[in-house]
Write a protein that binds this DNA or RNA. Structure first.
Lengths: 188, 188
DNA sequence: GTCTATAAAGCGATAGAC
DNA sequence: GTCTATCGCTTTATAGAC
């Protein structure tokens, strides 16, 4: 039903991109209006809580996407090795091979972390737990699975930081390859 | 000569802490004045360029510290293995075992990255290069030294992100141990 | 549902007294 | 060198016309 030009769900991905580029404080309503093509009136109609609600909606959408595309496959796939390979591919696509930052990671280092602490914590905790689950089913010892899952997420986040700091996406690609090799070796 | 209460050099560490806690945009002059105990007049006397100059001074001080305590020892130490162990200890102290974030890494993910691109890039490029130099002198093949240095910095930065996201400093401590073990193994 | 106009507060930065 | 007062601008958020 296209009774209106824009729907809230259409706006959220645009908001996500603006937040990634400008950060929470840098993304002013002026910039948001420009990039979404919506006036302040429309924005507050969709998000009565203002910027805070916009960011919360973005975090929820990110969580929904990772749950469907990454966490659930890791937890439930009959072939955990394939699920882990799938995760690497999904991560490579999602972060545009290092050209796109992780909004949740950026929030974690920002002073807005406290405001979105639950969402930030949940994102990483679920990821680590789902990856550890897949590793265990692939034959890893529980201890090793947990520490390897943690190490993997650390490598991805660190690679996003360093890629962007050096303005060199090959850093991310290399890190993802190294990580994949380490996971494969642990499942051998 | 204590002819004045405050000197510019005394203010910079306070500024660094405020920037780490609030981020560049979040650290308003009101907050900075509160935390340094200086009025706007004094701040602009020391830093005529305003917030931008304050942040630049902080980045320069960080670079100076890492150059003296981390990069130079890595490059010049007669015992590269000891220098690498020293780096791990210095990093653990500097980042307060995961309770303190890396301002340069936070800047890299922030939209202020472009404004301080040279300093941000230099910080990580020098670190990687110095660590690779030490690894080579410790017996690593040049290729392996470079990729291992990169991997190490990625692990440190990623661990800072994840530690803060999960509000769990033990993540950082574990990552530092894992990294140290990997470095030791490569030099064996 | 979308817009413009506007309010109220906070921002970085400056001026000038001391 | 440090302060207070203030400027001019931008911010988030609201109100109300359409």
């Amino acid at each position: 039903m296209a009774k209106t030009i824009a729907e809230r769900a259409d706006v959220v991905p645009l908001l996500a991109e603006v937040l990634r580029e400008y950060g929470f404080e840098g993304a002013s309503l002026a910039v948001i209006g420009e990039r979404t093509g919506l006036g302040k009136g429309s924005l507050y109609h969709f998000f009565p809580g203002g910027k805070e609600e916009m960011a919360a909606a973005v975090l929820q959408e990110i969580d929904r996407w990772f749950e469907a595309e990454v966490y659930r496959p890791l937890r439930e796939a009959t072939d955990p090795r394939a699920a882990i390979d799938g995760m690497i591919g999904a991560v490579d696509d999602y972060f545009r091979s290092g050209r796109r930052i992780c909004l949740v990671g950026a929030f974690a280092l920002d002073n807005v972390r406290d405001r979105f602490a639950t969402a930030v914590k949940g994102y990483f905790a679920e990821w680590r737990s789902a990856l550890a689950s897949a590793l265990k089913r692939a034959g890893c010892a529980p201890d090793q699975a947990h520490s390897l899952a943690e190490e993997t997420i650390i490598a991805i986040q660190g690679a996003l930081v360093l890629s962007r700091a050096l303005d060199d996406p090959t850093v991310f690609s290399r890190a993802l390859e190294t990580t994949q090799a380490r996971l494969a070796k642990a499942m051998a």
